[in-house]
Simulated scan of single mutants.
Amino acid sequence: MTDTRKTALVVRASRTLGLGLTAEYLRRGWDVIGTVRDTRRTGLHDLAEASRGRLTVESLEMTDPEQISALRDRLAERTLDLLFVNAAITRGDIPIGEVPTDVFTEVMVTNALSPTRVVEWLRPLVAPTGAIGVMSSDQGSIALNTEGGQDLYRASKSALNQLMRCHAARYAADTRTLLLMDPGWVRTELGGPDADLSVEESIPGVVETIEHHRGKPGLHFLDYQGQVVPR
């Protein structure tokens, strides 16, 4: 009998949005590979133990190019229906003129360079009809920035969006779907306790939007309700 289960790779799947995304795909019958940054036990390990072999935990510090290359080699025989990169840090709401250079570099490397490097290097593992997604934010939208604030975080998400646009242009004939996903304002460590949504309210919509667009080539910037986010 042919195994028709689909496979997702979720990068940074150990907590909040990444963990929720992993759990939702497992609930939908997928096999999932989830990455953690180090050897510490996380909720992803608990989920893997309960998954009856459908969730595999891999180690990846995605800011380290050698680790990305090593993961690509370990997964060389796998075919992915979805590659999703979940990564974001913030270092406070500091006016850009006061941001230390090392903090600027850290946020840009984590939020923009590293996710697109993962996309570039792991793209060959994704099936031609598959999807590649990154967790973006409406704060990366230039058109929607009417109030300012969170200068560095906004800039890093705008940079991520632009780098994904570059990727889409470079591979214009590619049949894979490219997605910039805005999960909404979610109650996470980054979103804070006053955010509008819980992970449980955001993630099913994120997955539904991914699945609705998977198989549709081109780059799409969408929110968790499937609405287009202005760039």
Rank of each mutant, 00 (worst) to 15 (best):
Y25T: 12
S136K: 02
S51D: 05
V109Q: 14
T79K: 14
E66G: 11
Q139G: 09
M108T: 05
R41K: 14
W121Y: 01
A143W: 12
R74H: 07
A131S: 14
M108I: 13
H45F: 09
T63P: 03
D31M: 09
I96C: 01
Y153P: 04
G53V: 03
N145T: 03
L82N: 09
L83I: 12
T56V: 13
P128R: 11
V119K: 07
G148W: 04
V85W: 04
R28M: 08
T105E: 14
T39Q: 14
E77S: 14
T39R: 13
R72P: 00
R123N: 10
S59G: 10
D81Q: 12
N86Y: 09
L75N: 06
R37Q: 14
I33T: 13
T116G: 01
G140R: 02
P115E: 07
E120L: 07
L83A: 09
L55I: 10
V109D: 13
E120I: 00
D81P: 03
R40T: 13
T110R: 04
L75T: 05
T56P: 00
S137K: 04
R123Q: 09
G148A: 11
V126C: 05
V32S: 10
P128A: 09
P124V: 06
L55K: 06
S69D: 14
L144Y: 13
T101Q: 10
R54W: 00
A131C: 11
A143D: 15
S156I: 09
V119W: 05
D93G: 02
L82C: 10
M135Y: 00
N145I: 03
V109N: 12
L26E: 08
E24G: 07
L160V: 10
N111E: 08
A112H: 06
V99K: 06
Q67C: 02
S141T: 05
E147M: 11
A131D: 03
R91W: 00
Y153I: 03
F84E: 13
R41F: 00
Y153K: 05
G130D: 02
R40S: 13
R91N: 11
E77L: 07
W121L: 15
G92F: 02
T116Q: 13
Y153W: 05
D102Q: 14
G140M: 03
K157C: 06
G133F: 01
R117K: 11
P128E: 12
G29L: 04
R154M: 08
Q150W: 15
L47I: 02
L75R: 12
Q139V: 00
T101D: 10
D46A: 15
S137P: 04
D73N: 12
R78T: 15
M62I: 07
S69A: 15
T56C: 01
L160A: 10
D102P: 02
T129S: 14
E106M: 11
R28S: 11
R117D: 12
V57M: 05
L125Q: 05
G34H: 10
A155P: 01
S51T: 05
D151W: 04
I89F: 05
F104I: 04
T105C: 01
V32D: 07
T56E: 14
R40F: 03
I142E: 03
S51I: 03
L60F: 08
D73K: 13
V109H: 07
R40L: 10
A48D: 05
A50E: 14
V109E: 15
R41V: 10
L44H: 10
T56S: 13
A50F: 00
A159R: 06
L71R: 07
L152D: 04
V85P: 05
N161D: 12
T101G: 06
E120R: 15
V107R: 02
P95G: 10
